[in-house]
Design a protein around this nucleic acid. Structure first.
Lengths: 219, 219
DNA sequence: CGCTTAATGCACCATCTAGTTACTTCCTTA
DNA sequence: TAAGGAAGTAACTAGATGGTGCATTAAGCG
């Protein structure tokens, strides 16, 4: 999406006054942020419009409804993480390294993109009705599962991993141990009476997670 | 809370017409259900009142505000799970059995009480501002962590578990691998293209989780 | 049995919210 | 350069929504 350039036909920047793609993108970005902060129900269309420096009418013009806007946001969020995962080139690594790298990546991605977690939570509150409509998300996930499956197979061949591990269960577990810690960082920090988001605590958790996964798969 | 009895001073049941405790409890139950279904922002006070067969005025009479009502609900939810955990009498079991029992219990509790998960998610969306005010929750969690800590110590002594495991990290992990699977059951079932809530799938996941935890702690 | 107090119900309000109508302004292209 | 479509705006609406004021009614006590 090269929509922020705002160039006229002669290629000269001119501070884009009327730029459909740019406006659409600003709305999407603002919506992602507001939906992540307040959930689908809690987010306000007026607030999104203001944050996007767009007129509310534009939201309906480009997206049709609040629900459709949410769908665009969640689809985009899944697409981003799946794209980033593919860029890890895990197939080129030794299976143990590949797996560790995936655990690290997953943790860091959630840490740097907390809105992904909140959006997924919100989507599950709504019984995945938006994700259900997206073929793109399914296809990209299929590719991702295949990649993890490949790592497992190579690990079994090399004698590093035990056989019979379901790649989907493994995926879920890798996600779970990071996701849960971070999505529940507020209640967690209160009930356990320690700051879970302190630098040392975060590093400790990442090492713990790597250890958990390595022990889980090792032969 | 023995509030449903509705007895007059002579102890005879008389279909309680004016029963403050009963009304309060009906509101709490209805609120828990509606907050769990729609989140704090999405839940409607009028709907809660109707579901509780109480007048909306009563909600404000007993709880003061929607926020205070939510606080009562979340405090109650934490209290319930912590109470159930204490009833497991894990101290009387062999450390390995105790740990397995805890993993099984946690999974089954989330499965049977899905509203707990949704409430906690909602509370984290609001940065734990309600839980923050509850001393009860902190105290009960402290006791729970001590119990897990005891299991770990006994396991180290018996030679079953390795030393140096942080009970809070272990707790978080036990919760995570069940919680994540279940809270994301809707998106999970779509993106992985398999029904995660099917009976066999649930059993498989539980066994996988027990395995994960056992491998994590074993010497 | 009457009186006080707490439980309950009704009607109402001020504000907000998703979505729309009717309009103006800019940009492209023939 | 004129025209038509696309981008953008402001004001509005119909229905919610959280929250209240006030009257009413039952419970329990002396």
């Amino acid at each position: 999406m090269d929509a922020t350039s705002g160039k006229s036909k002669n290629g000269v920047r001119k501070g884009r006054l009327r730029d459909a793609e740019a406006t659409k993108l600003r709305i999407l970005v603002a919506a992602k942020s507001d939906f992540a902060k307040n959930g689908l129900g809690g987010a306000r269309v007026d607030v999104i419009a203001a944050k996007a420096k767009a007129n509310k009418r534009m939201i309906y013009h480009y997206f049709g409804s609040k629900d459709n806007l949410f769908q665009a946001v969640i689809e985009n969020a899944y697409h981003d993480i799946r794209t980033a995962e593919q860029k890890l080139n895990l197939d080129d690594l030794d299976p143990k390294d590949a797996l560790e790298r995936l655990v690290r990546f997953t943790w860091q991605y959630y840490l740097k993109n907390p809105e992904f977690i909140t959006l997924v939570n919100s989507e599950n509150l709504h019984r995945a009705k938006h994700v259900k409509r997206s073929e793109l998300i399914k296809a990209e996930t299929r590719k991702f599962v295949a990649m993890v499956s490949g790592i497992l197979e190579r690990g079994v061949s090399s004698g590093d991993f035990r056989a019979g591990i379901d790649p989907v269960q493994l995926n879920i577990t890798i996600a779970a141990i990071g996701y849960y810690y971070l999505t529940n960082r507020f209640t967690g920090s209160i009930i356990f009476e320690r700051d879970l988001m302190e630098k040392d605590a975060l590093n400790e958790r990442l090492e713990f997670n790597i250890d958990t996964i390595m022990r889980l798969v090792s032969a």
